[in-house]
């Protein structure tokens, strides 16, 4: 919209009739010489940003390299297992021995049995070590697992307040105990997380012909938590709960809870191990995973399991000889 009416502009600021013409010649030398040496003058935001962003990116790259390359360099397998196994402390006893002998590091993801199976189905774990046989067999039948092997067992216990409000102490029948808990409307803390423990609990309720969900929120509390969190809640609520013995033995926040019911054959807690099917999920480290499975069921592995003591008592009973499938 603007058109030149006066003289055509052929130059910019530099040729303005400004007072700088004089100082140009006079002051160039000394001032131009000493000023850039002053760090504060030179430190404008451009420089500062460059160095700030450069250092941020350096931190980033350093970490990404450190974390990105380390797993690739090491030889390791990923095992999906359960919180109760982890909380029992068995892995800390077992895995270093395997790693020492095989050179294979074992990384354990401890979640509920249901979630562990999902992880393995997606191919995010190489080996599955869980304790709910029907789910494990389905996993193999669906083609996700190569073969299921028994590894070991321990047992479940029903814990509850020492005062025994439901009058179940000493019962040898877990379903009968559950029935009394329901009749007395005594507090019961359920994991409700689709774990092996939770699945067994539901089977026991079914055998007792009680639908606990009908009482959810009253005396039956569905927590949706792992074994430890459930026991913490049970302590707080003075509630009954189903726990595997190893987790219970290792648990430090027992409060006024104690084992009330044990010894029912249905309370056997059988652990199985499965190599995830490399034909189905191609990232599976079949060779190293198989080495771990083989070691667990070998005489050496079985003995190592048997050696693990919790409070002076054997925590797990190896039974790999009875391999199924």
């Amino acid at each position: 919209m603007v058109s030149a009416i006066v003289a055509p502009a052929k130059a910019g600021v530099q040729e303005q009739p400004a007072g700088f013409a004089a100082l140009d010649s006079r002051s160039r030398g000394p001032l131009a010489g000493d000023s850039p040496a002053d760090p504060r003058r030179g430190n404008d935001e451009g420089d500062a940003f460059r160095s700030l962003f450069a250092s941020l990116i350096a931190i980033l790259l350093a970490t990404l390299l450190a974390s990105g390359t380390a797993p690739a360099a090491d030889r390791f397998i990923t095992v999906a297992s359960t919180t109760s196994t982890q909380n029992s402390g068995l892995f800390e006893h077992l895995l270093p021995q395997f790693t020492r002998k095989s050179g294979i590091e074992v990384r354990v993801i401890a979640v509920g049995t249901g979630q562990a199976i999902k992880l393995a189905e997606k191919g995010d774990a190489d080996v599955l070590l869980v304790h709910h046989k029907p789910s494990e067999e389905k996993f193999v039948a669906d083609g996700f697992g190569v073969k299921r092997l028994d590894v070991m067992y321990n047992d479940f216990v029903i814990v509850g307040p020492k005062t025994d409000p439901a009058d179940v102490k000493g019962l040898k029948d877990a379903s009968a105990a559950f029935k009394r808990v329901a009749e007395k409307k005594a507090m019961f803390a359920s994991r409700s997380d689709d774990s092996g423990t939770h699945k067994l609990e539901l089977e026991l309720w079914k055998a007792a012909q009680i639908d606990p969900k009908a009482h959810s929120g009253v005396w039956y509390r569905e927590l949706g938590s792992g074994m430890g969190a459930t026991l913490n809640t049970a302590t707080g609520l003075s509630a009954h709960a189903l726990s595997d013995r190893a987790s219970w033995s290792q648990f430090k926040n027992k409060g006024d809870l104690a084992i009330l019911v044990e010894g029912d054959p249905r309370l056997v807690n059988q652990y199985g191990v499965i190599l995830v099917n490399p034909a189905k999920r191609k990232h599976i480290k079949a060779k190293d995973g198989q080495a771990f499975v083989d070691w667990l069921v070998s005489a050496d592995g079985q003995k190592t399991i048997a050696d693990y003591k919790i409070g002076g008592e054997q925590g797990f009973f190896p039974n790999a000889a009875k391999a199924t499938n």
Binding site: T63, L64, A66, S67, G68, A70, P71, A72, T78, R107, I109, K122, G123, D124, R281, H283
Partner: peptide, 17 residues
């Protein structure tokens, strides 16, 4: 990041990254 997911090939799941 899951092996079954779009970035599964990088094997980043269960790493600090």
């Amino acid at each position: 990041l899951s092996r079954a997911g779009p970035f599964g090939v990088f094997g980043l799941l269960f790493t600090p990254t």
